[in-house]
Amino acid sequence: MKKFTALAVAAALSMVGASAAQAQEYPFRDITNAVVWGAGGGTDTINRMVMAEMEKFLPVGISVINQTGGVAGSNGMIYVLNQPDDGYTLAGISESNVTAAVQGGWDKRMNVWFPFIVGGSPLMISVPAGSQYNSLEELVAAAKAAPETIPAAASGSGSIHHLNLLALENGTDAKFRFVPYQGSAPAMEAAVNGEVQLVIGSLAEQFPLIDGGKLKPLAMLSGQEASIGGKTIPDALSEFPSLKQYLPLSQSIGFAVANSASDDVKNVLSEAFTQAMASDTVSKWANDNHYVISGQMGDAASQTFAKLESVFAWTLWDLGAATVDPETLGIPKP
């Protein structure tokens, strides 16, 4: 027994010695991508898809895990930032993470990241299949006639869907009764069973229900028309030009590495990301799943996130839904 213990100690100590000789080119071991949102959601799905593609252009594998909890994914972001900034731990993030600071989840801004944006699914507004409203104009007119009575579903306060609803209200002077749900799936379920009269969500989320005839699409909020099954869904921004000063406000799903990582790491990842985004697999996936590809990275992506951060943070603060003043965090007004 004692012999064994001595052996184990010796083995352990020899390993300590070996750690000095660990200079290897990045990446020599598998990379871990910690998605800060739950499995099966948009951010998780996109990250799994893109990581599988990036693996083809890297000498190592990428393992995707989920690190959820906190507010706006703060638990996962803190976890990744606490890992060494050697590029072996990435964070799978989305536009919804930008509110983590004003909601009290952490005390950092999005500029701690070096982001890569894969894209997002265009947002839209739909009503139950049997609804009396057949166009956005009819709906807006009804809401103006009876302000704050038409229940409108969107996922939680401060989500991109909620902010789009607010933008719609601001741009059309209509007032709805916002009913928050925990995510898009229950929000759509509520629209289908008639608990609410309209729902804001992404094309990717709503497509199966529209295709199945359970929801009726009214308008796109992304600034571009779309077509489902040969039917064109009009663009809200051209119907109501006043919306243009608030919209589009679109999803930005992707991943990030700590900004303090070395240039070497950033270059390797950028290279693999660019190649992956140019691949047929990604464009086919985006097409099949109703996503629009962005491909922004580095400075350009940082600017996108900075803009989102300022819009989200200040909107939430003005609504009284934020706990930390964006001023104290140094977030500029939009």
Binding site: E148, S157, G158, L166, V179, L319
Partner: peptide, 8 residues
Amino acid sequence: ARAAGIAD
């Protein structure tokens, strides 16, 4: 109650 975007 803080409204958080809910009408009232």
